[in-house]
Amino acid sequence: AQEYRALYDYTAQNPDELDLSAGDILEVILEGEDGWWTVERNGQRGFVPGSYLEKL
């Protein structure tokens, strides 16, 4: 798994998404072809927009 940093804040719109704060460090589990990536942070897993992340 790769570590990424959130570039922007994101507020989850659905229960299966995660909130992001700019600067958060996340582990990317799966890069979805639809642009939604499965990530894990502090034991929580959910979808976030891949375009909001940069690889560390």
Score class of each variant (00 low, 15 high):
15 P>M: 10
49 P>V: 02
27 E>F: 15
2 Q>G: 10
44 Q>F: 09
11 T>D: 09
48 V>G: 00
7 L>R: 11
31 E>D: 05
49 P>K: 08
53 L>S: 08
41 R>Q: 08
47 F>T: 11
4 Y>K: 02
55 K>A: 07
24 D>G: 03
39 V>R: 00
7 L>N: 07
8 Y>T: 11
20 L>T: 03
6 A>I: 07
18 L>Q: 03
40 E>I: 13
41 R>D: 02
46 G>Q: 00
25 I>N: 12
4 Y>Q: 02
5 R>T: 10
19 D>L: 01
12 A>G: 10
36 W>H: 09
24 D>V: 03
52 Y>F: 15
13 Q>L: 09
28 V>F: 06
31 E>Y: 10
41 R>T: 07
11 T>L: 08
15 P>T: 10
14 N>Y: 09
27 E>Q: 14
32 G>E: 07
52 Y>R: 04
2 Q>D: 09
28 V>S: 05
23 G>M: 01
40 E>C: 15
25 I>K: 12
27 E>R: 14
25 I>T: 09
35 G>V: 03
38 T>M: 12
19 D>Y: 04
48 V>K: 00
52 Y>A: 11
26 L>P: 02
24 D>M: 05
47 F>D: 12
47 F>S: 14
45 R>F: 05
54 E>K: 06
12 A>M: 04
1 A>R: 15
56 L>A: 13
36 W>A: 05
21 S>R: 14
19 D>C: 11
45 R>M: 14
40 E>R: 13
9 D>I: 03
21 S>Y: 12
36 W>N: 12
11 T>H: 11
13 Q>A: 13
47 F>C: 13
24 D>T: 04
20 L>M: 14
43 G>M: 06
4 Y>R: 03
6 A>K: 00
27 E>D: 15
25 I>Y: 10
2 Q>N: 14
22 A>D: 03
48 V>Q: 01
41 R>C: 07
32 G>F: 05
19 D>A: 07
1 A>G: 13
29 I>T: 09
48 V>L: 02
56 L>S: 11
48 V>F: 02
44 Q>W: 05
48 V>I: 04
29 I>L: 13
21 S>C: 15
5 R>M: 13
46 G>H: 02
33 E>Y: 08
37 W>C: 14
18 L>E: 02
5 R>P: 00
26 L>E: 02
36 W>I: 14
15 P>I: 12
41 R>N: 09
26 L>D: 02
9 D>C: 07
12 A>N: 01
6 A>R: 00
7 L>T: 06
43 G>H: 07
47 F>M: 15
47 F>H: 12
34 D>C: 12
11 T>W: 06
16 D>Q: 13
33 E>C: 07
26 L>Y: 07
54 E>R: 07
8 Y>L: 11
13 Q>I: 06
22 A>R: 12
56 L>K: 03
28 V>M: 06
33 E>M: 09
24 D>W: 03
51 S>C: 13
31 E>K: 12
25 I>L: 13
16 D>T: 14
41 R>K: 13
42 N>G: 13
32 G>L: 04
14 N>P: 01
28 V>T: 04
35 G>I: 02
18 L>M: 11
50 G>E: 15
17 E>S: 04
44 Q>S: 13
21 S>A: 14
49 P>S: 01
7 L>V: 12
43 G>P: 01
5 R>K: 14
34 D>V: 03
33 E>K: 13
28 V>P: 04
10 Y>Q: 01
42 N>V: 06
7 L>I: 14
35 G>N: 08
16 D>W: 09
37 W>Y: 10
35 G>A: 04
15 P>E: 14
4 Y>A: 10
34 D>G: 10
3 E>L: 10
2 Q>V: 13
6 A>S: 08
40 E>H: 05
11 T>P: 04
47 F>Q: 11
38 T>P: 03
50 G>C: 14
33 E>H: 12
14 N>R: 12
47 F>V: 15
43 G>Q: 08
5 R>Y: 13
54 E>C: 06
10 Y>T: 02
47 F>E: 08
48 V>A: 08
40 E>Q: 08
47 F>W: 10
37 W>I: 08
15 P>R: 10
3 E>G: 11
27 E>T: 13
51 S>F: 07
4 Y>E: 01
5 R>A: 07
54 E>M: 04
1 A>E: 15
10 Y>M: 02
20 L>E: 00
7 L>D: 03
30 L>K: 14
6 A>M: 06
30 L>W: 12
16 D>E: 15
16 D>Y: 10
8 Y>S: 12
6 A>H: 00
37 W>V: 13
28 V>E: 02
29 I>N: 05
21 S>F: 12
33 E>T: 13
48 V>D: 00
16 D>V: 07
30 L>C: 15
12 A>L: 01
54 E>W: 04
12 A>W: 00
36 W>P: 05
6 A>Q: 00
24 D>F: 00
39 V>Y: 00
20 L>F: 12
23 G>A: 02
26 L>T: 05
39 V>A: 09
28 V>G: 05
9 D>K: 08
13 Q>M: 11
29 I>M: 10
44 Q>G: 05
14 N>A: 10
44 Q>A: 15
36 W>V: 14
4 Y>W: 09
34 D>H: 10
49 P>L: 07
53 L>V: 15
48 V>E: 01
55 K>G: 06
31 E>W: 05
43 G>D: 08
41 R>M: 12
32 G>I: 03
19 D>H: 07
36 W>K: 15
29 I>G: 04
3 E>K: 15
42 N>W: 06
54 E>D: 05
17 E>F: 03
25 I>M: 15
31 E>I: 15
22 A>F: 06
40 E>T: 13
53 L>D: 01
27 E>S: 13
9 D>W: 02
40 E>S: 11
40 E>F: 04
38 T>R: 12
41 R>V: 11
52 Y>D: 02
9 D>V: 02
1 A>T: 12
14 N>G: 11
35 G>E: 07
4 Y>P: 00
1 A>W: 03
31 E>A: 11
25 I>G: 04
10 Y>R: 08
22 A>W: 03
55 K>S: 11
21 S>P: 01
55 K>C: 08
50 G>S: 03
33 E>N: 13
13 Q>E: 10
34 D>W: 04
10 Y>L: 01
24 D>I: 02
49 P>D: 06
42 N>R: 14
46 G>L: 03
12 A>P: 07
8 Y>P: 01
54 E>Y: 05
15 P>N: 09
13 Q>R: 12
9 D>T: 08
26 L>W: 03
52 Y>Q: 05
20 L>D: 01
37 W>N: 04
12 A>Q: 04
42 N>A: 13
8 Y>M: 14
20 L>K: 01
51 S>L: 11
26 L>M: 13
41 R>L: 12
54 E>I: 04
44 Q>L: 13
26 L>R: 01
5 R>Q: 14
18 L>Y: 02
49 P>H: 05
11 T>K: 14
36 W>G: 04
39 V>P: 00
24 D>Q: 07
45 R>I: 11
46 G>A: 03
42 N>D: 14
3 E>S: 09
41 R>Y: 08
15 P>Q: 10
28 V>K: 08
32 G>W: 05
12 A>I: 00
7 L>F: 04
37 W>Q: 04
47 F>I: 15
34 D>R: 06
40 E>G: 05
56 L>G: 10
17 E>W: 01
18 L>N: 01
35 G>H: 03
45 R>Y: 05
22 A>T: 13
20 L>N: 00
55 K>P: 10
48 V>S: 01
35 G>R: 04
47 F>P: 01
23 G>C: 02
15 P>F: 05
27 E>W: 11
32 G>A: 12
2 Q>L: 12
38 T>Q: 13
48 V>W: 00
6 A>F: 00
31 E>R: 12
28 V>D: 01
10 Y>F: 10
27 E>N: 09
33 E>P: 14
45 R>N: 04
26 L>Q: 03
